[in-house]
């Protein structure tokens, strides 16, 4: 799923946002949203009165409205989530993995690329440690999102921080970062974020279930395994813009093929690490050249923005 939105707003993340009272489901207090903010765009009087008119399932109407806005913001990206869930799900029975284990994977890891890498490791009879390590290296990109989201979530109650962290897919993180200025109020902001992130993970899980169910009836002649390179080509190629990406990718490809004789699919992890090192060194060299010409260095938000263009 290519996400080509600007994250310029995240560079204005409020560091002094006022901490609103904790107000989870069933305990929401409309006054919480009236805490003075240092950022523009407080809730309108209309929205405040609407929130106070009543609650549904113990959740204030304003929260429902904010969650709905979050859902609408991420909805265009959901078909990709379903398709990728289908792809992963179809691989589960093909490798003889227990269906419940496949479902558990999508609920617990919530990161398609790494889940497929584990499947590939299992196919290569790799030791468990290598399968897990490869998956965690692929998921290291979430550290970048997490760093960018730290200030965005800073005024949230701890339980919200811990819960939302699990739902931060590439797409949900980008949508959250994009709407920081629209929702300066921490209460409204967190409902907006959960309104997008939770359904996005839900459709990913639904796609996985559909793939697990449909997988066994797909004939071998369809060569369903092609979905793996196809999905990653579709996600990765549109986001390839920076020279360091090309350098990293070229080195990765060369090392993966040159090291194909390594056992347990280790050529993949060696290729990834080699590409990261080569790309980083190239980027430092390029940055030094740009600095000599007086151009700016990349911020974390810019790095997260680029990351999101090819994330899963």
């Amino acid at each position: 799923m290519s996400v080509l939105w600007s994250l310029r707003s995240v560079r204005k993340v409020p560091s002094t946002i006022a901490a609103a009272p904790s107000s989870g489901v069933g305990s929401w207090d409309p006054r919480a949203r009236l805490v003075p903010m240092t950022q523009p765009g407080p809730p309108s009087p209309e929205s405040v009165s609407a929130a106070g008119r009543g609650a549904v399932l113990g959740i204030g109407r304003q929260q429902w409205a904010d969650a709905w806005a979050g859902l609408k913001a991420i909805a265009p990206l959901m078909p990709g989530s379903v398709a990728f869930g289908l792809a992963f799900g179809a691989l589960v029975p093909a490798l003889g993995i227990n269906s419940w284990t496949g479902l558990f994977a999508s609920v617990s890891v919530v990161a398609g690329a790494s889940q497929i890498s584990i499947v590939e490791s299992l196919r290569a009879n790799a030791p468990a440690a290598i399968a897990v390590l490869t998956a965690l290296i692929i998921n290291a990109r979430f550290a970048l999102y997490s760093a960018a989201l730290g200030p965005v979530f800073s005024a949230f109650p701890l339980r919200w921080k811990l819960g939302l962290a699990h739902l931060m897919t590439d797409q949900a993180a980008v949508v959250a970062l994009q709407h920081v200025d629209t929702y300066p109020d921490p209460v409204r902001r967190r409902w907006f974020i959960v309104g997008g992130a939770l359904p996005f993970v839900a459709v990913w899980v639904v796609g996985t279930v559909a793939g697990i169910v449909a997988g066994p009836v797909i004939p071998d002649s369809w060569q369903i395994g092609f979905i793996v390179p196809l999905m990653f080509i579709a996600v990765m190629v549109p986001g390839l813009k920076r020279p360091e990406d090309m350098v990293g990718l070229a080195v990765t490809a060369a090392v993966v093929l040159a090291a194909k004789g390594l056992p347990f699919g280790l050529n993949v992890i060696v290729g990834i690490v080699s590409g990261i090192v080569a790309g980083t060194l190239f980027a430092e060299w390029a940055d030094a050249s740009r600095a000599r010409r007086g151009m700016h260095q990349q911020t974390v938000a810019e790095a997260a923005e680029h990351e999101a263009e090819g994330g899963l």
Binding site: A113, I116, S117, E120, I137, I138, A140, R141, A143, L144, V228, P229, F232, I233, V235, M236, G239, L240, E244, D245, G248, L249, T252, A253, V256, L257, V268, I269, G271, I272, G275, I276, V277, G279, T280, A283, E284, Q298, A303, H306, E307, G310, G311, L312
Partner: peptide, 16 residues
């Protein structure tokens, strides 16, 4: 910089 290169290299490795 290294973190920003994880996605393209990881996906590229799986594709290749």
């Amino acid at each position: 910089r290294a973190l920003s290169l994880v996605a393209p290299t990881a996906m590229g490795a799986i594709v290749v």
